[in-house]
Simulated scan of single mutants.
Amino acid sequence: MSPTRTRPADPAALDRARATVTDLMARHHVPGLTVAVTDADRLLFAEGFGHADLSTRRPATVDTGYPWFSMSKIATATAAMRLADEGRLDLDAPVRELVPAFATRSGELPRVRQLLDHTAGAPNPLPVRWVLPADAPDGDVHTATRRLLARHGHPTRPPGGPARYSNLGYLVLAEAIAHASGEPFTDHVRRAVLVPAGMTATGYTHRPGADHASGHVRLPRPLVPALRAALPGGLVGERHGGQVALRPFRVAGAGYGGLIGTAPDAARLLRLHLADGVVEGNRVLTPETARAMRTITTPGRPFDLGLGWFRRPADRDARPAFVEHWGTGGGFWNAMRLYPDLGLGVVVMANTTRAYGHSALVSALVTAFTA
């Protein structure tokens, strides 16, 4: 099916979408939020709402950076699939050929492809303390990641069953990418994905001088000490009304959740996938590969999976059809969604820990550009 042709949003429809955004933010106590809408060729709309930081009342803008958390997995999967297109990564090879520790003692061996669609049998421990202060050196982040892999980086279920979402699987995939590419994982993703896509405001560290959102957790005052005990020292900041601020941090585990950047940059990654592998005139993936990534083939829980993109089982019959990926964690709740038949992609990034009805928000924005 050819994508529906988009046109400039009707001003009244766009105002209704803005009203939906502000209403959801008020009802769910979201401090700040940035959205971006794109088609396969260009950014159609981007805007910030609310505050990037409650203590200073600094506004959230299109230039505000947010930790991507698990939205980073789409960049990781894109890098893996580009290596496969180049013949440098065999998706059907046993994972242990690239990451020896990730192997079952008996039975079928997990394959690289199964890391992408979460069927490799990897565990998914709760990533509560998988963060370090924003100024932590790369060596400390690398050491923390190695500890996670040493403790959890092996299959705990037979491969090939229903998809079960796993952050650890994407840490192992990052190791496989580094081995296949011959360079550190983060360096390879920058060179193979971020630079070709023109994503200059996104990386695996906080850019000096850039505007970054402060994470917030809505929490009753008596529970704040428990939050301080749960997170590494120094990350829990001051309380502002019913919200507790988190100081800037880095994620230990670049492959599953380490990117930090803006909504318009995330929209560039969506453009790459909407245009079947081409962005900024650069071909990153073959058309067949880009389409395969967003084809949902593997049922699972809590998501049905393609090779990176997912969809909730409850959304299997949604029309217009879409695939998406969320990025959630302490202080932030993000999502990016592709509507291949409409030729549209939407990103929403917010500095709140709780869900806020992102589907209604995204639907309102899509309606503004297709009505």
Rank of each mutant, 00 (worst) to 15 (best):
S2I: 08
P3I: 06
P3K: 03
T4Y: 05
T6P: 06
T6R: 09
A12V: 14
A13C: 11
A13R: 15
L14Y: 11
D15H: 10
V21Q: 03
D23P: 00
R27K: 14
H29S: 12
L33H: 08
A36F: 09
A36W: 08
V37R: 04
D39R: 05
E47F: 05
G48P: 10
F49V: 07
G50L: 07
H51S: 12
A52K: 06
L54C: 11
R57F: 08
P59E: 09
D63S: 13
Y66T: 11
Y66V: 08
W68Y: 15
M71K: 00
S72A: 13
R82T: 08
D85W: 02
D85K: 01
L91M: 06
D92H: 12
V95A: 02
V99I: 02
V99T: 08
A101C: 03
F102Y: 13
S106W: 14
S106E: 14
V112W: 01
L116T: 03
T119S: 15
V128N: 00
R129D: 13
A134D: 12
D138V: 09
D138E: 15
G139V: 15
D140I: 03
A144K: 09
T145R: 14
R146N: 13
L148M: 15
L149A: 03
A150H: 11
A150C: 06
A150T: 13
H152P: 01
T156P: 01
P159E: 04
G160Q: 05
G160K: 06
A163V: 10
A174E: 04
E175T: 09
A178C: 05
H179S: 13
S181H: 02
G182A: 03
F185Y: 14
D187Y: 00
L194G: 03
A197T: 09
G203L: 10
P208A: 09
G209D: 04
D211S: 12
H212L: 10
S214V: 12
V217T: 04
R218H: 05
R228H: 06
A229Y: 01
A230Q: 02
G233F: 02
G233R: 14
L235N: 01
V236S: 04
V236Y: 08
E238T: 14
E238S: 14
R239T: 09
G242M: 00
L246M: 08
P248K: 06
A252R: 03
A252I: 07
G253K: 03
G253S: 01
Y256W: 12
G258P: 01
L259C: 13
I260A: 02
T262L: 03
P264C: 04
D265F: 03
A266H: 06
A267E: 06
A267C: 06
R268L: 09
L270Y: 10
L272E: 02
L272I: 06
A275C: 01
A275D: 12
G277L: 01
R283C: 07
T286H: 13
P287T: 12
E288T: 15
T289Q: 11
A290Y: 10
A292I: 08
T297A: 14
P299K: 09
P302C: 14
L305R: 15
G308Y: 13
F310C: 12
R312V: 10
P313L: 11
A314R: 15
D315S: 15
D317Y: 13
R319P: 02
G327M: 04
G329H: 04
G329Y: 06
G330V: 13
N334R: 10
M336I: 13
D341E: 15
G343D: 10
G345I: 04
M349G: 02
M349D: 07
A355E: 15
V362D: 00
S363K: 13
L365N: 04
T370P: 05
A371E: 12
